[in-house]
């Protein structure tokens, strides 16, 4: 069955989400991944927005985390103060899985979504942290969406907006951050994960038709490819539910 890369990326993220997860969604594909998980493999997962909406009934795809569509039939409509407190508090925050995106990523999963070039006179200015740095600081697991390009998988970030593992296995502890960090990076070519001990990024899966070497050619730094397997393509059922239940207006897909 025909599928697009965007559908593949969305469904790989959805498969990572479990029934016990509270899913922190950003704008765009991350929101769609949360909706896909809820409709396909994790019906008891909880959709959660930094704006203060928890367990929204998403009948239409929101185009921003403050879209009025996130406010419909929630468990509570509160605000930013409550949503970030719920992530900083390990009792609830320990169950949150973050979904983030960025302009640059390094080998320890640290993210830049602020500037490229000099901070005081940037080449490109991006949106900034929003809640991204907060989520990456607080929660035990996060999924990162990236485009696989050399200028995005970089040796050194121009600005570190959100913490991954900082400078290695003890980075977070030394900085005073709670345990946690990114668990996977989903790109248009494959899936990267992080080694349990070294916290270094490695290639976990490549999409059909793409070789691990192709992937390495799209990064400034090298990663271990010895553990990489071909990714399981979307099933017919996954694609049907994604297209019919999650984005029937094709706003993201």
């Amino acid at each position: 069955m025909y599928y697009t890369l965007k559908e593949m990326m969305t469904l790989i993220a959805a498969r990572e989400i479990k029934n016990s997860d509270i899913v922190f969604c950003g704008t765009g594909i991350s929101m769609l991944a949360a909706m896909a998980a809820k409709n396909i493999n994790a019906p008891e997962s909880v959709i959660f927005f930094e704006t203060g909406a928890i367990d929204s009934l998403l009948e239409e795809l929101p185009l921003a985390v403050a879209d009025p569509r996130v406010m419909y039939r929630t468990s509570a409509n509160s605000g930013l103060l409550d949503s970030f407190a719920a992530m900083q508090n390990p009792i609830t925050g320990g169950h949150v899985i973050g979904i983030l995106g960025a302009a640059q990523i390094d080998k320890f999963g640290n993210l830049n979504s602020t500037v490229t070039g000099d901070y005081h006179w940037p080449e490109i200015r991006f949106s900034g942290s929003g809640g991204g740095c907060d989520v990456a600081s607080f929660v035990p697991r996060s999924i990162i969406f990236m485009q696989h390009e050399k200028r995005k998988f970089v040796n050194t970030l121009d600005y570190m907006t959100s913490p991954g593992y900082l400078d290695g296995p003890d980075g977070r502890k030394n900085a005073g951050l709670p345990e946690g960090g990114p668990v996977m990076v989903i790109t248009n070519m494959g899936v990267m994960r992080f080694d349990d001990k070294s916290k270094l990024m490695y290639l976990s899966a490549f999409y059909p038709g793409i070789s691990p070497k192709d992937i390495l050619a799209h990064m400034q730094f090298s990663v271990d490819i010895s553990r990489a397997k071909e990714a399981m393509p979307p099933t017919e059922k996954e694609l049907r539910l994604l297209r019919e239940k999650c984005d029937c207006q094709r706003l993201i897909l």
Binding site: N110, T114, Y119, S137, M160, T161
Partner: peptide, 15 residues
């Protein structure tokens, strides 16, 4: 106080 942003450029770089 918060625990957010420790170790990042939110802390290190000032505009």
């Amino acid at each position: 106080p918060t625990r957010s942003s420790l170790g990042t450029d939110i802390v290190n770089k000032w505009g």
